[in-house]
Nucleic acid binder design. Sequence first.
RNA 1: GGGGCGGUAGCUCAGCUGGUCAGAGCAGGGGACUCAUAAUCCCUGGGUCGCGGGUUCGAGCCCCGCCCGCCCUACCA
Length: 505
Amino acid sequence: MSRYFVMTAIPYVNGRPHVGHALELLQVDVLARHRRQRGDEVRAQTGTDDNALKNVQSAEAEGVSPTEYVARVAERFLGLQRPLDLRFDDFIRTSSDPRHRPGVEKLWNACAANDDFYRKSYTGLYCYGCEQFYAEDELVDGLCPEHLVRPDVVEENNWFFRLSRYQQPLIDLISSDRLRIEPASRKREVLSFIESGLEDFSVSRSMKRARGWGIPVPGDPEQVIYVWYDALANYITAPGYGSDDAGFAHWWTEGGERVHVIGKGIIRFHAVYWPAMLLSAGLTLPSTIFVHEYLTADGQKISKSAGNAKDPAEIAERFGTDALRWWMLRDVARAGDTDYTDQRLVTRNNEDLANNIGNLVNRTVSMVNKYRGGAVPPLPEHNDAAADLRAARAGAAARIDEAMAAFDFRRAAEVVTDLGDAGNRYVEAAAPWTLAKAERKEDAAPDALDAVLAELVHTCRLLGELLTPFLPASAAEILAQTGEGGDRVTAPSPIFRRLELAAEE
RNA sequence: GGGGCGGUAGCUCAGCUGGUCAGAGCAGGGGACUCAUAAUCCCUGGGUCGCGGGUUCGAGCCCCGCCCGCCCUACCA
């Protein structure tokens, strides 16, 4: 048994979670369930990044305190767990969780003790309307793109982190896969970025600019810790860095895998800043960073202004939790963004779930009821006619393991539908209804039909097992209807409903 | 400007280290069956694998150039 610690990036959001957030949460959930099913000791973690300056602005815009605002956001994310059937072992909020601040301070002090911080002045173009700095090329005709005013030259004296020191160590770690970055294209991207040269970056902001929101720099109450430095630390503060030595040692330091699942937009922070911070503090690094792409909705980038910020809870309510989970697993490409549409979800659901897997279970359970009164016949030792089906069953788990190890959810899910295909083909080839007629008319021996039904029940039970990490609720139903491994099936009842889109959609 | 990734049948996509690699699913067409959620099974796919060069006995798969799309480009999450 090995140890497996898998975590999402903690989202910082200005609004409600959308399908894009749901994707990452689901991927972690599925990885965790998969490893748990294989017998590993698993910890799945997520949370919210509360300390961004933008949260202060958003809170003001809504006329509430930052504390109240981030609590509201956290609720929305926590609220995703039920409609998506997610099971996390931990959910950390960087503003209010008592474990977080002591850990961040400890991390800061460790980096400081390694002489990796120094003070430096930064001069930039600052828009007071936006409350943020702009780079020259971000301006439109020298004006703030939001407020169309000329930004002021503002100088701020902040703490800087000696990232430049870690250029070569990072190259060594990543190129040797001691810090594994998946897919390989992302690894190349990160390496080429690092090789182009790393500059130190600022890790604090003035308390004034932060309006007192965030974690003060230890020993410097005029400064607040930069939100990324703060946020990244959640991965170790949650298991106990700075508050629970045993927990931290167990999940982070003492072997096992530490896996980050992140979106492509924040690779730099996870694959460069974060490992450098850990190296500086003398801490263990994550073992793997898996980078996913983004979802678009109806052909457009997801955004609130476009009005297409699909609410995953609504989708789940409308089409079903497992239909949504299945779509995200089975239809999301590894490279390139994937477009979410209701139609795609419905098609995937009907083809794979209702017609293939669901129907196979349904016809199997129906036949066992009809021909054998619900009693499951014993599986014969040999059955040449079922050779293909048996081969499909025998290889399925290993194929899923392989795909999951490569974070290829789509290929993993495909293994299940492949087995469903094999099952359906077997039914046609074996034609149990013909065998049943033969039994009645010619008083034939029941062995032939027994064997067919046994093969089918075993196939369905395996489908239930294989499907468990992906679609826990439906998988449980499959196992229940096929008798939980016992010698009787229940009455048949469709497990996956066929979905339809209304005409005007 | 620099870096990364995509551009493969109408649609969505597979194609690992070059030699059945021109594929799968869906859609479309034809047929079979009836256990089943009008589900299933079988047959049916001549697409310059973005464009132009090159390397090679042989290239979607390697190299160069170009076109198109997306992403990143550091103190903005």
